[in-house]
Computed example of a mutant assay.
Amino acid sequence: MRVLHYLELRDRLQRSGIGTAVRHQRAALADSPLWLSTSPWRGGGPLTAIYKRAIGDGAFREFDLAHCHLPGPGTVAVAEHARRNDIPLIAHAHVTREDFAGSFRGSTAAGPLLQRYLAWLYSRADLLLCPSEYTRSVLQSYPVDAPIRTITNGVDLAALAGHGALRRTYRRRFGLDGVVVYAVGNVFERKGVGTFCRLARRSDREFVWFGPYDDGPHASPTVRRLTANPPENVTFTGWIEDIRGAYAAGDVFCLPTRVENQGIAVLEAMACGAAVVLRRLPVFEEFYTHGEDCLLCETLSEFEAAIERLAANPGLRRRLGERAAETAREHGFDRVRRELEAAYEEARERAADEHATD
């Protein structure tokens, strides 16, 4: 089967969670008998495709199923082409109104319009994929008129192997000492950067956020303020070329995010055996268990107590980390491949049933 596995704006999304999830899927399908194409366009791009169509060659390559990952204009074009030609269409809901809010300047205000657009586009799919039951419930509330199937974003266990050997190098690079509290990923307001800094002000420990951040006009005022003038014991590193070094350098992974569809960085931290402290959100309670593979908190005082408890108890950090690593292994690429192949088969069957009744 020829599968279009399409992520528009791919180059701009390499450092994003969407880009990471798409890379995970392509790696998981590398040994599959499926034939994957990453571009729908004849000639490789939309402008060339327009020319091809003008001369009668057709704008689109041939494919048997389309799996689209970003709700942009390219995906709209692919969706229309799929509907006209009875091609099964899968949309992947990496983006929701809730997780877009608090990411960039104006992203929250754009929420109502974004929700209507997503409901329209996602409803055009034969099957909609999302990372969690939490996200499924959000999409159903829009509402989305399409069947929804959950599939893990997965974690690249092989890419994280050997992280421990980088601990000394990265701690020396950033001047870290003692028990270090850290987060990994893009610095967004919705990720809880404000709470992260408030926790740091109440502590004498070092706090480090490993990951890129925007300081231009499109960045949120909170992110610009905190990254330009952080508390004395907080470091914002910017882009890290080897993410394994981030997970090696820290001791207590703390992500007080307000919204997640799953959280790839959490799975990565767990895969590296980190002791993880998270906000008590439905999506985290869906995958993780408080006191077994993580600590879940609601208030600032609870976060503070959890961090200090872990800092003072290396044995507890080790036990939580070992269980966390077991949890992360449940989200490996073998599972991603099985779930994708099952989703592709379901989409083909649904499309065939729909066309048979037309």
Rank of each mutant, 00 (worst) to 15 (best):
residue 144 V to E: 00
residue 145 D to N: 15
residue 145 D to A: 15
residue 146 A to F: 00
residue 146 A to E: 01
residue 146 A to N: 00
residue 148 I to H: 00
residue 150 T to F: 01
residue 151 I to M: 13
residue 151 I to A: 10
residue 151 I to S: 07
residue 151 I to C: 02
residue 152 T to Q: 07
residue 152 T to G: 07
residue 152 T to I: 13
residue 152 T to A: 11
residue 153 N to F: 12
residue 154 G to I: 07
residue 154 G to F: 06
residue 155 V to K: 05
residue 156 D to R: 06
residue 157 L to K: 07
residue 158 A to I: 01
residue 160 L to V: 11
residue 160 L to Y: 14
residue 162 G to R: 12
residue 164 G to E: 15
residue 164 G to H: 11
residue 164 G to P: 03
residue 164 G to Y: 03
residue 165 A to H: 13
residue 167 R to L: 06
residue 168 R to P: 00
residue 170 Y to A: 03
residue 171 R to D: 05
residue 172 R to G: 14
residue 172 R to Y: 07
residue 173 R to V: 06
residue 174 F to D: 12
residue 175 G to A: 10
residue 175 G to R: 09
residue 176 L to S: 02
residue 177 D to I: 01
residue 177 D to C: 07
residue 177 D to L: 01
residue 177 D to M: 01
residue 177 D to P: 00
residue 178 G to M: 07
residue 178 G to D: 05
residue 178 G to A: 08
residue 179 V to H: 02
residue 179 V to M: 08
residue 180 V to N: 05
residue 180 V to L: 04
residue 181 V to W: 04
residue 181 V to T: 14
residue 181 V to P: 05
residue 181 V to Y: 04
residue 183 A to M: 04
residue 184 V to R: 08
residue 184 V to H: 07
residue 184 V to F: 08
residue 185 G to V: 07
residue 185 G to Y: 03
residue 185 G to M: 05
residue 185 G to C: 05
residue 186 N to D: 07
residue 186 N to Q: 14
residue 187 V to M: 10
residue 188 F to H: 15
residue 188 F to W: 15
residue 190 R to Y: 14
residue 190 R to A: 11
residue 190 R to S: 11
residue 191 K to T: 01
residue 191 K to C: 06
residue 192 G to P: 02
residue 193 V to F: 09
residue 194 G to I: 15
residue 194 G to E: 15
residue 195 T to Y: 09
residue 196 F to L: 12
residue 196 F to H: 09
residue 196 F to R: 04
residue 197 C to Q: 06
residue 197 C to G: 08
residue 197 C to V: 07
residue 197 C to E: 04
residue 198 R to Q: 14
residue 198 R to K: 13
residue 198 R to H: 11
residue 200 A to F: 03
residue 200 A to H: 04
residue 200 A to K: 01
residue 201 R to D: 11
residue 201 R to G: 06
residue 202 R to F: 08
residue 202 R to S: 15
residue 203 S to E: 12
residue 203 S to T: 14
residue 204 D to F: 08
residue 204 D to G: 14
residue 204 D to V: 14
residue 205 R to F: 05
residue 205 R to Q: 12
residue 207 F to P: 03
residue 208 V to P: 02
residue 208 V to F: 02
residue 208 V to S: 04
residue 209 W to F: 04
